[in-house]
Design a protein around this nucleic acid. Sequence first.
RNA 1: GGUCUCGUAGCUCAGCUGGAUAGAGCAACUGCCUUCUAAGCAGUAGGUCUUUGGUUCGAAUCCAAACGGGAUCACCA
Length: 596
Amino acid sequence: MQLQYAISQSISQALHALFGLSVDASQISLQPTRKEFAGSFTFVTFPYTKSIGKGPEQIGEALGTYLKENAPEIKNYNVVKGFLNLEIQEEVWLQLFRELMTNPNHGQGTSSGRNVMVEYSSPNTNKPLHLGHLRNNFLGYSVAEIMKANGHNVMKANLVNDRGIHICKSMLAYEKFGHNETPETSGLKGDHLVGKYYVLFDRAYKEQIDALVEQGMDREEAKKKAPWMLEAQEMLLKWEQGDEHVVNLWRLMNTWVYAGFDQTYRNIGVDFDKYYYESETYTLGKERVEEGLQKGVFFKKPDGSVWVDLTDDGLDEKLLLRADGTSVYITQDMGTAELKYNDFPYDQSVYVVADEQNYHFQVLKAVLKKLGKPYAEGIYHLSYGMVDLPSGKMKSREGTVVDADELVAEMIDTARQQTEELGKIEGFTPEEATQLYHTLAMGALKYFLLKVDPKKRMLFNPQESIDFRGNTGPFVQYTHARISAILRKAAEMGIAVEAASFDNFENLHEAEQDVIIQLVAYSEVVQEAGKLYAPSVIANYAYELAKAYNRFYQEISIFNETDEQARSFRIALSAMVARFVRESMSLLGIEVPERM
RNA sequence: GGUCUCGUAGCUCAGCUGGAUAGAGCAACUGCCUUCUAAGCAGUAGGUCUUUGGUUCGAAUCCAAACGGGAUCACCA
């Protein structure tokens, strides 16, 4: 913030004038003053006692006196031990506020010219999305929006994992039990229908294993020898050979799944600029392996398999290509990295993938560096923690997952109940009410999943529905709805929202000042969130802003104010809060209602 | 076992590059709607920041060790 820098400069000058000390303004750090003391910024004098040779209070007093006389921004000061608390002139805050009003791009970074690809979602096509995917999707979408706000060109990508043994499992069970069931005949959403057969496969497979074990076979052996496993593997082989029947079935079932996913994506409000399909990319990467062999950074074992030695990077030896020449996971990712780069020459490629794959991405980056790829350095694994249930980790096959579609439906129902209980639905058409419930439900859910630091694991308790009070999405949305009501009334009264209407306003209330401080911080918060890839930073900001506004709202009347200048200022302040609430929430992928 | 991570109020989480008496929300308890939306506001209570050392004027924050969770160490993806 410019203001902080100006104060730092003044302190730098003061240190020089009073004590002959040369400290660059950039080295001087200010912190927000704790609320129990008067002031907005605090300068800590402890670090200077040695070089100056005086006590911390003495230094604080001297600096305070100097600043009050020489720095126009400083209204007053107080010294508590080694802390110099600085109060800022009201007019300075008002001036900052006026600047915000006239700058519609505050918080929009100037174009960086940098290309950032954000890959997220990347689902398997054998089962529907669950709560863990929701965290992934919301994170990915939000990070992409945050990157845009930081001035980058963003490409949102979805790498669909549409082939492999897991898909064949669903296909096989469908062939056995399906009786040509379709989403239409079953009334099931496509992804749920396919997921049903994945579960059926697993159930039958387990029974087969148990049966084999009972016959005296070793369990590990039984897992490999169970008839359905063998059939699934055979099916995968046929798929790779282009067997018409298998490929047709695969196509049919994937079509169902995509229709289901599209519906979910639309419902939760995420989208993609580009889709990649693993069925089209899984053979890529072999050329990169060949390239590495030629460059001598990879090596071949006697059986013909290709490896890379990453022990110098603190990692292990890693297989890159099987002896039979087929790809493994890392081979594919080497290929898709190149493909992505050719499609969109990125400076940075963000992979929103759970932290269980930390090792994999370390390896990927190290391998691409060894190949000397220009895009290796830009690879960033946005590693997020799992969502735990009170019972522990979610497991698809064991049915201990919270289904995404169901959860969203429940949230919408909760939103409806809450709204009806509060009697807040008068004057809404049925369509508007439906829209509101969806907005609130998604607001609550997204905020809940995004307010936590992405790196951390988090807990979700399905028994306790997500709150609509306190530090929640609806709380922030409510603040916006409140302000909207005020702005409607102001418009009716013909009061314009413009800086000129409060030129002579003074007597800034503390609650008003606190709101301005929050507003001014917005652009820094957006930068911080971008630097950390952390929507949680935005969520916490939106909450703090809303809280500061609500305090103001409660303490100070707007329309009962007789001073027109003050009234106009407060309306303008409200409008500005609404704007930043809307913008910050939109960075989280959350909409804000006009009424609720 | 190796590597990586996490451990803050009963619960869920904030605490930026070290700074004042560690903050919110939920749950509990008190107040505040004839005044702009009470999904709100104000307040009370709740803590050996897992433990022990170290660095420092100063540590929840940095370093080390221990204890306790979790992830990973596949010719699965």
